[in-house]
Amino acid sequence: MRERPEPVRVFILDDHEVVRRGVRDLLEAEPDIVVAGEAASAREALARVPAARPDVALLDVRLGESGGGDHAGVEVCRELRARMPELACLMLTSFDDDEALFDAIMAGAAGYALKRIDGSDLVAAVRAVAGGQSTLDPRATARVLARLRAPRPAEPEAPSPSPELERLSPRELQILELIGEGLTNRQIAERLFLAEKTIKNRVSSILAKLGVGRRVQAAILAQRLLEQQGPGRA
């Protein structure tokens, strides 16, 4: 994790005041973390976060009807990341929901945790995402990928080529498939007999062409796009 000369600034979105207060007290007890602001609804968060200039947005996935509704926190993450690409979003939820996890990953979330997480682990997660790390649970992410790999009913007509895949070179398509299988850069390099640095550069190019910021997003997108091409893809 890179050194941070300034305290980590955190913004809290949760529709329950007691939860917000508890999380705020927990975080402000740490000498290297300050709470820069908080909100009870998606609308409030979108209005307040830019002015608060946080490093981390701690977002409740499910807000009450007055707060925006189910998965409103994910939409806040998506919108904030579009406005502030450097912002790290850490999602909190009371439910172990694969659909919400998938949506959070594709919205650009850096982390996803259940509200039963220990206080010390939540503090560690905030520090990790502020330092550019991902705290997405590999086991939960693997469940989402496994679900995407599950066989689906045959389509009546062959789908048209994906415009996202058409942006990639044949070698990049090959690497994307291996990312979708969950291989690391080193494993891909060994499989293709290339230098690990070369694979790292190719992966960066793939992420840019697909318009995603994180490798796990590319892995999930790979499953969907390559699946659409069917067995006859080049």
Rank of each mutant, 00 (worst) to 15 (best):
G73F: 06
A82P: 00
S134D: 09
E65K: 05
R81Y: 04
F102A: 14
S94K: 00
R127Y: 04
E172G: 11
S66R: 15
P163D: 03
A158Y: 09
S134P: 02
R116G: 11
A104S: 06
C77F: 01
D98M: 08
D70K: 09
R147H: 10
M106W: 00
P161R: 10
R116V: 11
E65A: 13
V123W: 04
R62G: 09
V61M: 08
E166R: 15
M106K: 01
S134L: 11
C77R: 01
A109W: 08
A125N: 08
D103A: 12
R149G: 05
A110Y: 01
G64C: 09
A154I: 07
R149D: 13
I105K: 07
M106C: 01
Y112V: 01
M91A: 05
P170I: 08
D97S: 05
G131C: 04
G132F: 05
C89F: 09
A142E: 15
R116Q: 10
V74C: 07
M106T: 00
L168E: 11
M84I: 11
K115F: 02
A100G: 12
L63T: 05
L114N: 00
L92R: 01
V74L: 02
Q174P: 06
D60Q: 12
S66E: 15
E157W: 13
P161Q: 06
L145N: 06
E65Y: 03
L80P: 01
F102K: 08
L90V: 07
G69Y: 05
A128Q: 07
G131M: 03
F102H: 11
R167H: 02
V129T: 13
H71I: 00
A150F: 12
G67N: 15
R147Q: 11
E172S: 13
Q133W: 14
S134K: 01
A130C: 04
I105S: 12
D97F: 03
L165P: 03
T93Y: 06
L122T: 09
R147G: 14
D55K: 11
D121A: 14
P159H: 14
S94G: 00
R171P: 06
E157Q: 13
V126N: 11
G69N: 11
D97T: 02
Q174T: 15
A110H: 02
L87K: 04
R149K: 09
S66L: 14
A100V: 08
R171D: 12
S134H: 04
A125M: 13
M84P: 01
L114T: 00
D118F: 02
D96N: 08
Q133V: 09
V144Y: 14
F95E: 09
P159T: 07
V126I: 09
C77P: 01
R152L: 12
I117A: 02
P54S: 04
A109D: 08
G111M: 08
P151Q: 11
